[in-house]
Computed example of a mutant assay.
Amino acid sequence: MTEGNFVDYVKIHVFSGNGGKGSAHLRREKYIAKGGPDGGDGGRGGHVIVKGNKNLWTLYHLKFKRHVKAEHGEHGGKQRSTGADGADEYIEVPLGTVIRDSETNAVIKEITEDKQEFIVAEGGMGGQGNWHFKSSTNQTPRYAQPGIPGKEVDITLELKILADVGLVGFPNAGKSTLLSVVTAAKPKIADYEFTTLKPNLGIVEYRDYQTFVIADIPGIIEGAAEGKGLGHRFLRHIERNSTLLFLIPADAPDIVEQYRVLLDELKRYNPELMDKDRLIAISKSDLLDGELKAELSQELDKKLQLPYLFISSVAQSGLTELKDKLWQMLNKEPV
């Protein structure tokens, strides 16, 4: 999937169908001059339904779809025939999509399962035909109910990707490079900040044909929780990852301080993120010789209460150990 095709936020104006009018028909046949009312009911207007689709990874197919309109219900007919219901209109979305009311920004529903359906705009009910209103005092009612109008709603669809592992780090920490090495993903890679502007997903092939999904989230900068840089555009994607992999380059001025800044940004954005499992990977470790690595390990052992690994995507060292550790964290027995 190319970066330009990754769309994680769309606004859509939806219209459900109007209910059909009930019929006020009076039965008139040969030899039956006054057959009485026989008007049928109107059909229900079509719903607008959001439906989960496990084969979708992005909202790109909705990028240019600004309006979604369901069919109106048909009107009732003679001989008590009911009008056909209007066809429902489906909006298919990837798993992990949040539906919000565009006016209030309130969350309406989250779609997390394949084929899960949620009606965002109900179709109007059809009106009753005149035969419903026949009584001993009104043998030939010449009126029927109109159909109920459909609903008109503005919704926002917001994708929070469902990945097992979220890669967290400052810009240019080597996240895209790591993803390109351990998965078949082909993210954009360059030696400047904010190369990754949208999340990249990759499937890591583990032992015995087992897999897990890893997401390269755009680099965090200080102040991201307040919306600086790419801000909330990417932080929301981290919410759904079960394990967070912090990637900090070996040539960082202060590895422990960088980790604390990253952690603080996540905590300020959503304190619940602190409950997720965390692992630190020191990237670009091919820049370190044995002596420097030993000194750095001593410092990290003193200041960090968190597991860490030395890796190099370029030299492809430490990657097997990294995959083993992540697999162990993802499949540990719940406490």
Rank of each mutant, 00 (worst) to 15 (best):
residue 328 Q to S: 15
residue 200 N to H: 10
residue 213 V to D: 06
residue 106 A to Y: 15
residue 250 A to Y: 06
residue 98 V to K: 05
residue 39 G to K: 01
residue 284 K to A: 04
residue 246 F to W: 02
residue 37 P to K: 03
residue 242 S to V: 07
residue 149 P to R: 11
residue 58 T to L: 08
residue 295 E to C: 13
residue 27 R to D: 05
residue 1 M to G: 10
residue 37 P to D: 07
residue 319 L to I: 08
residue 298 Q to P: 01
residue 15 F to L: 11
residue 265 E to C: 08
residue 288 L to I: 09
residue 220 I to R: 02
residue 33 A to M: 10
residue 233 R to D: 07
residue 49 I to W: 00
residue 314 V to L: 15
residue 15 F to A: 04
residue 80 R to A: 11
residue 19 G to M: 04
residue 317 S to T: 08
residue 129 G to S: 06
residue 90 Y to F: 15
residue 153 V to G: 03
residue 191 D to G: 12
residue 28 R to A: 14
residue 130 N to M: 06
residue 61 H to W: 08
residue 220 I to A: 03
residue 300 L to M: 11
residue 87 A to S: 14
residue 11 K to W: 07
residue 281 A to E: 03
residue 144 A to I: 02
residue 279 L to Q: 04
residue 54 K to A: 15
residue 173 A to H: 03
residue 21 K to F: 10
residue 127 G to Y: 00
residue 33 A to T: 07
residue 98 V to Y: 04
residue 170 F to G: 03
residue 171 P to I: 04
residue 140 T to D: 14
residue 115 K to H: 13
residue 40 G to E: 05
residue 253 P to M: 08
residue 140 T to I: 09
residue 227 G to M: 06
residue 129 G to K: 00
residue 262 L to A: 04
residue 37 P to C: 12
residue 141 P to S: 05
residue 214 I to T: 02
residue 25 H to C: 07
residue 28 R to S: 14
residue 201 L to K: 03
residue 180 S to M: 05
residue 151 K to C: 07
residue 210 Q to P: 09
residue 209 Y to D: 15
residue 316 Q to A: 12
residue 221 I to G: 03
residue 283 S to M: 04
residue 264 D to W: 15
residue 193 E to P: 15
residue 326 L to M: 06
residue 113 E to I: 09
residue 92 E to M: 09
